[in-house]
């Protein structure tokens, strides 16, 4: 078996707001009817969490569940568990119309931490990132610079951001540049 590594193999920047490649993370795209009881129980069996409300993310003992669109969830699990959990979900949903795919290797995940993490993202994302508008539990798909991305807060001043792996290196460079010491407007 080949040795899987993340896009930048755990690299991190050295500014006050630190950008880190979070390494490998299991990610499963699950499409289906989010109101269905069967899908609910399959998700809670897989990650131990309820289905999040619109544009929210919930966390359970085995991972997180993020609301991607009205018919799509993203499950965040341990990398080496992703295949097994995908199979488990497909089995639990049986004949119900759905799609569960392990997309772990198609994505990159970064951590943005430090005072001013909001401002780093606010430089590139066309959304309101003030503490009143975006907090822990919120999940937002948008663009950062010109790249499609999604992010959420894990704790105060700490974000996790996912994007396609093919643009992961550019994303890291973009975030690192945006987080350069002395370049933050200190608005929030």
């Amino acid at each position: 078996m080949s040795n899987a590594i993340s896009i930048l193999n755990g690299a991190s920047s050295s500014d006050a707001v630190k950008i880190t490649d979070s390494g490998l993370r299991g990610m499963i795209t699950l499409r289906g009817d989010l109101d269905s009881a069967q899908l609910k129980s399959a998700v809670s069996a897989a990650v131990g969490s309820d289905i999040p409300a619109q544009r929210k993310i919930t966390h359970g003992p085995m991972g997180g569940v993020a609301w991607m669109s009205p018919d799509e969830l993203l499950l965040l699990v341990a990398y080496d568990q992703a295949d097994a959990i995908t199979a488990q979900i497909s089995e639990a949903l049986g004949a119900e119309h759905h799609m569960a795919v392990n997309v772990s290797d198609a994505r990159a995940i970064f951590r943005i931490e430090g005072q001013g993490a909001r401002e780093v993202l606010a430089k590139g994302a066309p959304i309101d990132l003030s503490p009143e508008a975006f907090g822990i539990g919120d999940f937002r798909r948008t663009r950062v610079g010109q790249l499609a991305a999604a992010f959420w807060m894990t704790q105060t001043d700490m974000f996790e951001l996912i994007c396609f792996r093919s643009v992961g290196e550019f994303m890291f460079d973009w975030l690192t540049n945006a987080a350069r010491d002395g370049s933050l407007p200190e608005y929030f």
Binding site: Q54, R55, S69, P126, T142, R143
Partner: peptide
């Protein structure tokens, strides 16, 4: 109307 966000044109 699908995800409820009010966003600007570039999105």
């Amino acid at each position: 109307p699908c995800c409820g966000v009010t966003a600007e044109e570039t999105e």
